[in-house]
Design a protein around this nucleic acid. Structure first.
Length: 473
DNA sequence: TAGCTCGTTGGACAA
DNA sequence: TTTGTCCAACGAGCT
C-alpha cells in the first residue's frame, strides 16, 4: 500500500464527472480517489425500467473513469458494510458523496455518516442534485413553500453559479480492489422482454446529456412554451432521465439556459420554470417525506379510492387498452420508450384517479416500474397533484376530458396513430413495436380489436365530481 | 393581525 | 370560431 491517502467517492445518483463537487473535492485534495458504486437496497428496490436505465448509465460512467485514468469499483450489499469493507481493504481515510434528498437515502446516509465518524473516518456530503438546497429556501415566516408560484418567485433570483468543470484526470490506487462487473448486477433481469426495444430509446451518459441540452437550446427552446404541449412533436429537452440519474446537473441546465432567457426567449423561461418544478418536488419531499406514500393532505386518506390493483379497469389502463385513444397511446408510449409526454402523464393520471377513481399510489407504482426517468420526488408530486390530494393541487372539478384534450393537442391523430396499431389500416412501426415489447401473458397482439371505451368521458367526469364534491369522505 | 390576492397544465356553456 | 365566465371555496403567502 502506498503512503498516499485514499478517498472513497461513493457514487449514487450522480453519474457524471463535471459539476460534481464531491468528486472535485476528492480529486483536488491530492489523495488517491477510488470511485465506488454500491448496489444496495435503495437500488435493488427500483422498478424494472429504472434498473435497466441504471445499467446503461453505469456502463457509460465506467468508460468515463477509464478515460480519466481511473476505474469504477462496483460492489453489492448494505452500503455501510461495503464501505467499511473497502476502508479496510484500501486504508481510505475519507468518504465523500453527493447528497440524495430521497427520504430513504437521507436515512441511510445519516446513519452511515455517524458510523464513519464514530470510527474516525472523515465523511462529507456535497450539493449536486438540486439548485437550491431545501433548507436554504423558506417563506418570510420561516416555513417551507407549499405553493409553486411563490416558490418560483423566491428562488428565481437566488441562483449562484457554482458550476464546476470536469477533472482532467483522476488518480486512483494502482492496486485495484476486487470489483463486480455491471453485468454481474443483472439490472436487465426484471425487464419482461422489451429490453431490446427500450434500449433503442436510451442514450445514457454525460456526453449524451450535454449534447441534448445543446441541441435543445439551439432550436426547440424558442417555441418551447407552446410546442411542449403537443405530444407528437420533438419539442422538449428530453433531459429528464439524465437529470434523474445525475448525468447532468440542474446547475448546468440552468446556466446554459439562463443567457437565452436574458435574451428574452420566452421558451427559456418556461424551461427554467420546469427545472424549478423539479426543485419544488425535492423541496416538498424533503419537508414532507410522507408525500411518497400517503396523501399529502391528510383528509384525502379517507377518499373512497379503488385500491385493487388487479381490477380489470386498472389492468386495461396499464396495458393501454382502455378504448380511450389518448390514454392508450400515452400508456403504450411509456411501455415502449420508458418515457411519456408530459401532457400524456397528466391525462392518464387524471383518467386513473378521477374517471376510474383509483388510488394515485397504484399509478405511482406503475410509473415507478416503467419510467426510465423515474424520480421519487417528481413522481410523488405529480401523482398527488393530479389526484387532488397534494400540495398546490388541481381543484377537484378540474377533470381532463381525454376526447377534448386530443382535439386540442393532437387534432390530426399523429400521436395516437404513432402508438395504436389497431386504429390504422397501415400501422406505424412504433405502434407495432408495442406488441413486441409487452409480455406474452397479456394475450394481446396486433390482430386484436381495439376495445370499446371502458368508461365514457362524460359519465366518468360526472361520477368523479359527485364523489369529489361530497364533503363526507 | 387582518385583509387581500392568487392559484401550471380544464371543461361547459353562453354570447 | 373565438372569447369570457363560472365552476367552490380554501389556504398559502404577502403586505
Amino acid at each position: 500500500m502506498s503512503d498516499q491517502a485514499t478517498i472513497l467517492y461513493w457514487i449514487r445518483r450522480d453519474m457524471r464527472v463535471s459539476d460534481n463537487p464531491a468528486l472535485s473535492e476528492a480529486v483536488n485534495s491530492g489523495a488517491y480517489v477510488l470511485p465506488v458504486f454500491i448496489y444496495d437496497d435503495w437500488f435493488s428496490q427500483l422498478g424494472a425500467a429504472p434498473k435497466f436505465r441504471l445499467e446503461k448509465s453505469l456502463v457509460s460512467l465506467q468508460k468515463q473513469y477509464e478515460q480519466l485514468g481511473s476505474y469504477l469499483t462496483i460492489r453489492k450489499g448494505p452500503a455501510r458494510a461495503v464501505l467499511r469493507e473497502l476502508i479496510n481493504e484500501t486504508g481510505a481515510t475519507s468518504v465523500v458523496w453527493s447528497r440524495d434528498l430521497d427520504p430513504n437515502a437521507i436515512e441511510r446516509d445519516t446513519e452511515i455518516k455517524q458510523d464513519l465518524k464514530a470510527n474516525c473516518i472523515n465523511a462529507k456530503s456535497y450539493r449536486g442534485q438540486v439548485l437550491f438546497e431545501p433548507w436554504k429556501v423558506s417563506t418570510k415566516t420561516g416555513g417551507f413553500y407549499r405553493v409553486y408560484t411563490p416558490f418560483w418567485n423566491s428562488v428565481k433570483d437566488q441562483f449562484v453559479d457554482l458550476t464546476l468543470n470536469s477533472p482532467n484526470s483522476i488518480s486512483s490506487p494502482s492496486e485495484r480492489p476486487p470489483t463486480l462487473t455491471v453485468e454481474d448486477l443483472s439490472l436487465g433481469a426484471a425487464m419482461s422482454g422489451g429490453s431490446n426495444i427500450l434500449g433503442k430509446y436510451i442514450e445514457a451518459g454525460e456526453l449524451a446529456a450535454q449534447t441534448k441540452l445543446k441541441n435543445f437550446l439551439d432550436g426547440p427552446v424558442s417555441n418551447y412554451s407552446e410546442d411542449r404541449n403537443i405530444p407528437h412533436l420533438n419539442a422538449t429537452s428530453l433531459l429528464s432521465d439524465h437529470l434523474a440519474w445525475g448525468e447532468i446537473s440542474p446547475n448546468q441546465c440552468w446556466n446554459s439556459a439562463f443567457p437565452t432567457f436574458l435574451d428574452g426567449v420566452m421558451g427559456a423561461e418556461t424551461f427554467l420554470k420546469e427545472l424549478v418544478w423539479r426543485e419544488f418536488a425535492y423541496h416538498l419531499i424533503y419537508h414532507t417525506p410522507h408525500i411518497v406514500s400517503k396523501s399529502w393532505r391528510e383528509e384525502w386518506e379517507a377518499f373512497p379510492w379503488r385500491t385493487d390493483s388487479n381490477h380489470e379497469d386498472v389492468i386495461a389502463w396499464k396495458q393501454g387498452r382502455t378504448g380511450i385513444p389518448f390514454v392508450d397511446a400515452a400508456m403504450r408510449e411509456m411501455y415502449v420508450t420508458g418515457r411519456m409526454h408530459n401532457r400524456g402523464r397528466m391525462m392518464v393520471a387524471s383518467f386513473l384517479t378521477k374517471h376510474l377513481m383509483t388510488h394515485w399510489r397504484i399509478g405511482l407504482e406503475w410509473f415507478s416500474d416503467c419510467l426510465i426517468d423515474w424520480d421519487p420526488a417528481s413522481n410523488a408530486m405529480g401523482w398527488q397533484w393530479s389526484a387532488g390530494s397534494g400540495p398546490d393541487a388541481t381543484p377537484y372539478f378540474r377533470v381532463f376530458n381525454p376526447v377534448t384534450q386530443l382535439q386540442k393537442f393532437d387534432p390530426e391523430g399523429i400521436y395516437t396513430k404513432r402508438w395504436i396499431a389497431e386504429l390504422s389500416d397501415t400501422p406505424s412501426d412504433t405502434s407495432l413495436s408495442y406488441f413486441n415489447a409487452i409480455p406474452k401473458h397479456w394475450k394481446f397482439d396486433k390482430e386484436s380489436v381495439y376495445p370499446p371505451a371502458i368508461m365514457s368521458p362524460e359519465e366518468g367526469r360526472k361520477r368523479a365530481l359527485e364523489v369529489y364534491s361530497n364533503r363526507g369522505f
